[in-house]
Amino acid sequence: MRTLYVLVEPVCLKQALYLSSIDGLWEAAKKNNIRLKIISDEKAIPKEDAHVACVIISLSIRWTLCAAEALKRLNLKPILVGATVEFFDNSFSGPTIDRYDLISRQIDYLVSAGRKRIAFIGSEDNDINDNIRKQAFISAMKALNLPVQDRDIFSDDGDSSSCIERFLRFSGEYDGAICVNDKVGVELIVSAGLAGVKIPYDLFVLGSGDFQISRASKPSLSTSTLDYFKLGLLAIDIYNVLCKNADIDRVQITLPCEILVRESTANFPYSPDNKNTKLSVIDENKSDEDKSFGQYLLDIEMGLRNCEDIDIKMLSEVGKGSSIAAIAEALFMSVGTVNYRLKKIYSYFGVESKAQLEELVNSYIPQVGKLVEG
């Protein structure tokens, strides 16, 4: 049985998208009779073993470069997952998401809806993918002869809450906003509501990633697919090609994205074939004192991913203010089972009582029931 080492930047082990890529790796590895070993230091790779390639799961520029150089010293071909290979002049293997195409589609969509003053929100300077998005945003805006300046990019300097608060001070100048991911998008929706900015009436908002929380927010967040699970699957395909073809230096596969229209853009229809030819105000009591609002939303996303369908239905009932007995009756469960599952749900979301859970649901995921509809 072949062994494939997966070198993971530690911060990725706390982020849902990258965990999804790891799940994809596990599934594909099992089907291909490959043993996976998740590591955070290349020194864990035995030098005496014969290996062809190693997967790198990362998001920061410096860490990725250091990891890739370390692997090359071991005569291993790096396969990037998560980090965009284009950022490194396509010198590495890896499945990648065409973020230039994605940003272009998002801008075309907003323009087709009559939105022409567009802001880009939440990019981090050290994030590889955010840098690609930022470059793509500027290029696409210029290609459409739309006004774009550095001030239209609201970067996250380590605190997404202050980034969004800064944007909201100038939100009257914009009619559209593209957020780097759904966490930032939902945070903008919540903060805008507290600031009196009505979405989508005053501002169309687009996220990216199709997080669970994007469907449960109110209004629900228009977003785009970013199939990180499939990136994991494709990484195994690339590994197999490299193993069978020693003369191949690198293999790259591009995964397309699609826009998912929801309430934050007034359900305005997206027609990919009809492109435009011109080609703080944060309620700090809502989150723990030692967490940023953005991290709080990521914790909610992780909680939702831990939930089974029955837990989601229970969350919906809790949001309605239903009693334990009413939840049991509505979901055909015993009171004891409801109490048992509620305790698990409390642990998922870091709350201690049904009242706290009800406040969380109504504040951030009031449409959580949509996650199990249909």
Rank of each mutant, 00 (worst) to 15 (best):
R2N: 13
Y5T: 07
P10L: 09
P10N: 13
V11N: 06
V11A: 12
L13R: 13
K14F: 10
L17C: 04
S40I: 13
A44G: 00
P46Q: 08
E48G: 00
D49K: 13
C54H: 06
I57K: 03
T64V: 09
A70F: 03
L71H: 11
L80T: 08
T84S: 15
T84H: 14
F87D: 10
S91A: 14
G94C: 11
P95K: 10
S112Q: 12
R117W: 05
I118L: 12
R133S: 10
F137H: 11
A140L: 11
A143R: 14
F154L: 06
S155F: 02
S155K: 09
D157A: 11
D159I: 04
I164Q: 01
L168M: 11
Y174F: 15
I178M: 13
V190N: 10
A192V: 06
A192L: 06
Y201F: 08
V205E: 03
Q212P: 00
R215E: 07
P219F: 05
L226V: 04
D227K: 08
F229W: 11
Y239N: 12
K244T: 11
N245A: 03
I248G: 07
D249A: 13
V261G: 04
S264T: 07
S271Y: 13
K275Y: 10
K275S: 13
N276G: 02
N285R: 14
K286D: 06
S287I: 02
K291H: 06
Q295F: 03
Y296R: 03
E308Q: 14
K313P: 00
K313S: 07
G319P: 04
G321P: 05
S322F: 06
I324E: 03
T337K: 12
R341W: 04
V351H: 02
E352R: 14
E358V: 00
S363W: 06
P366S: 10
L371Y: 00
V372N: 02
E373R: 12
G374Y: 07
